[in-house]
Amino acid sequence: MLLLLWGAHLRADNYAAAEQSFQAGVKAYGSGDFSGAARDFQESAGKQPAAGTYQNLGNAEWQLGRMGPAILAWERALWLSPGATEARDNLEFARTTGQLEAPELAWYEVVSTWIPSGWWAVLTAFSLWLVADLLALPGIFQRRRTGWQQSLAALGLTLFLLTLPAHYGWHTRSRIGIVLEANTPLRLTPTEQAQEVTRVGAGEPGRCERTLGDYCYIRFRNAAGWLTREEFALVAQ
């Protein structure tokens, strides 16, 4: 209990500090200090990741001409809040402007974007344990299973099964990332002096298929190769 209270206290402190940085970022942005605003929003997001903070961070990065970090920030805003229309519009605007394509999502990934990931987790856990309890508890307490219990269990099981593709979608989507800098060389091998496969532009989406040391093997729409973690950032990271 004490631990919980201590954790809640720390979290409240973090929230207050994040809020303070957020407001400082808004002020800096308003005064045209986009660099300072980006720094403040970054600090706020580090303490308390929030959709609005990432949206503002994206705006500030965009104003600084940094397309990769801007798109990453907006993607993170959408990751936290799939219904954030402003972040979605900004992404569309940026991709239209930069002639970039959005990541290609499979159907189960699209399903996973319907509600935030935490909700899916809660829904799955709730439905799973509802089913388990309804099936196990009457036996434990030596009671007969009633009709409504069995119906509720069937409903919970259906709900649980329906949430599984969304979970898989979240898992695969968590491997999507964004190239941060323009003209980033895509390496053939995970080495410092690797041969260049091609160069990728800032904001290009890719999927990290595997990692080796500081390198990720990224698959883009038309190419695949190795990038360092400084060159490619996962959205869910």
């Binding site: 979290r11 929230y15 994040a18 809020e19 957020f22 808004v26 942005y29 308003g30 706020s44 308390q48 990741p49 929030a50 959709a51 609005g52 903070t53 949206q55 503002n56 705006n59 965009w62 104003q63 993170r76 990751w79 936290l80 809040s81 954030a84 402003e86 972040a87 519009d89 900004n90 569309e92 605007f93 239209t96 935030p116 990931s117 935490g118 899916w120 987790a121 809660v122 799955t124 979970h167 979240w170 898992h171 968590s174 959205v235 869910a236 990271q237």
Partner: peptide
């Protein structure tokens, strides 16, 4: 037709989370 410019700043941090890592991928969960 969608307005082709950046949105205004969000006035509040909005939906927050303790981490970007999905809930189901965290150890405590």
């Amino acid at each position: 037709e969608k307005v082709r410019h950046l949105s205004a700043l969000a006035t509040t941090p909005g939906v927050a989370a303790s981490s970007l890592v999905p809930l189901q991928a965290r150890g405590w969960f």
